[in-house]
Design a binder for these strands. Structure first.
Length: 247
DNA sequence: GCGACAG
DNA sequence: ATCTTGTCGC
């Protein structure tokens, strides 16, 4: 991956996001792992995200629900006003399940439906400032989890917020909201265990694309103003479940 | 070989 | 992820 902490190297005017599923989308585990190895170098760490609550665009949350019996998948994308966290846009997409759940390959199960939902949500002139994903970004065996993959495909800044530490290790963060501890793969900090509410189990934040780890945590904390999970995730989770039930 | 394993 | 009863608390 590349660092863009140097302002001179920062991306220029926001490019148009792409919501196209790339040609040759993997259908086997071997192809999927190879695709991750091929794309991992495209992840950008750092950038110039506006302060949480200070941006002009929306903060978008995405999530996916499944009915494996029927083979149906439903994705939701919800846009929030970064100030008051009010919902300003919603979109869903329903499709067929095309990939099993394999730890480390979650992106191949979730991304096709997520791209459809984002394409429906997006309105020209109203680009998301950032997309918050339910899962990991760089905290991944090959440093290319769902959030990083979605970021590289769309070009949008992304953040991963997961509910479990996957295979990584961490010490318990302090008991107060805002306290955190490094999420470690050996000696490497791949994310942070972040306490978003006093005395409540932490969430696990990692860089997706075009954000720094510190900014990713600041956003996660801002969005988790009232509950353990970011409001983006809560809204998207509720919406994709509704979409699945109605499909 | 065995256990662990985002959603 | 999804399956599920009761239970504690505002």
């Amino acid at each position: 991956m590349t660092s863009t902490s140097d302002p001179a190297a920062a991306p220029g005017p926001a490019a148009e996001p792409s919501y196209e599923l790339p040609p040759g989308w993997p259908t086997t585990e071997a192809e999927a792992a190879a695709a991750q190895e091929r794309l991992r170098g495209s992840v950008l760490v750092g950038g110039d995200l506006p302060a949480p609550g200070g941006g002009t665009g929306a903060v978008v949350g995405v999530d996916v629900a499944y009915d494996d019996e029927r083979g149906v998948v439903a994705a939701a994308a919800v846009a929030l006003d970064p100030r008051g966290l009010a919902v300003v846009g919603e979109a869903t997409a329903v499709g067929r399940v095309t990939f099993p759940y394999v730890p480390g390959l979650l992106a191949f199960r979730e991304i096709p439906a997520v791209l459809d939902a984002l394409a429906t949500l997006d309105r020209p002139g109203h680009r998301p400032d950032v997309v918050v994903c339910d899962g990991y970004g760089l905290a991944h065996p090959r440093r290319f989890g769902l959030a990083s993959h979605l970021g590289v495909l769309t070009g949008l800044p992304t953040i991963g917020v997961a509910k479990n530490p996957f295979t990584f290790h961490h010490d318990a963060p302090g008991p107060r909201r805002g306290q955190w501890s490094p999420l470690l793969d050996g000696a490497e900090e791949v994310g942070r265990a972040l306490r978003t509410q006093d005395g409540v189990k932490p969430v696990f934040v990692s860089v997706g694309h075009r954000v720094s780890l510190a900014d990713a945590c600041a956003y996660a904390l801002h969005l988790a103003r009232d509950y353990r999970l970011p409001e983006t995730t809560r809204r998207a989770d509720a919406l994709c479940r509704r979409a699945l039930a109605g499909a």
